[in-house]
Amino acid sequence: MANNWSEKEIELTAHCFKAVAHPLRLAIVCLLAQGERTVGDICSEMGTTQPNISQHLTQLHNQHLLKSRKDANRVYYAIADQRLSVIIGMLQEIYCN
């Protein structure tokens, strides 16, 4: 394997990239790289419906890319692994001058 990566590490990394390859999911991750947000905040920022956002949040959460916490009747989402924030920061630096 390349650079001493195990086959499992490469497969897990590929699944992470696949999860954020969708434009809306990438936009959500970029938003969350700036800090924790509620589902309502994300809906407002993305300009789409709560069911649509929830579907994408679930996919990202199932890949362990996001973590969530509940406070009263609100669910807050944040990036679970700060390495993803670093990757998003590098992508923004390269492509979003």
Rank of each mutant, 00 (worst) to 15 (best):
K67T: 04
H61C: 11
G40C: 09
Q55P: 01
R25Y: 06
K70P: 10
H15N: 13
A14P: 12
E45M: 11
K18G: 12
T48V: 11
G47N: 10
H61K: 03
T58R: 08
I87N: 04
I53G: 04
I53F: 03
E11A: 09
I10V: 14
K67P: 09
A78F: 02
I42D: 04
S6H: 03
Q59A: 08
I79R: 00
E7P: 04
H64E: 14
Y76E: 07
D71I: 05
R25K: 05
A78R: 07
Q63P: 08
I28N: 01
A72T: 01
F17E: 13
D81Y: 00
L57N: 06
L31N: 12
I28A: 03
A72L: 05
V86N: 13
W5T: 09
I87Q: 05
N62S: 13
Q55M: 05
L84P: 07
I28S: 07
N97C: 13
L57H: 00
A27H: 04
C96I: 11
I79A: 00
Q55G: 05
R69L: 12
D81I: 07
L84T: 03
E7L: 08
T38S: 13
N4I: 09
E36T: 09
F17A: 14
Y77C: 01
D81Q: 01
D41T: 05
T58F: 11
N52K: 02
N52W: 02
L60P: 04
I88E: 05
S85N: 12
S44G: 14
G40D: 09
I28L: 03
A2V: 05
V29N: 13
C96D: 14
P51Y: 02
D81L: 02
L24H: 11
G40V: 13
G40H: 12
L65Q: 01
L12D: 15
I53P: 04
I10P: 04
T58K: 06
L65R: 00
T58N: 09
M90Y: 15
A72M: 07
C43P: 08
M46K: 06
R83T: 13
C96T: 13
H15V: 02
R83L: 10
H56M: 01
L12I: 08
N52I: 01
I88P: 10
N62K: 07
S54C: 09
Y77A: 02
N3F: 06
H64W: 07
K67V: 06
I87H: 03
S68A: 09
R25P: 07
E7K: 02
K8T: 10
Q55R: 06
H15E: 15
C96K: 08
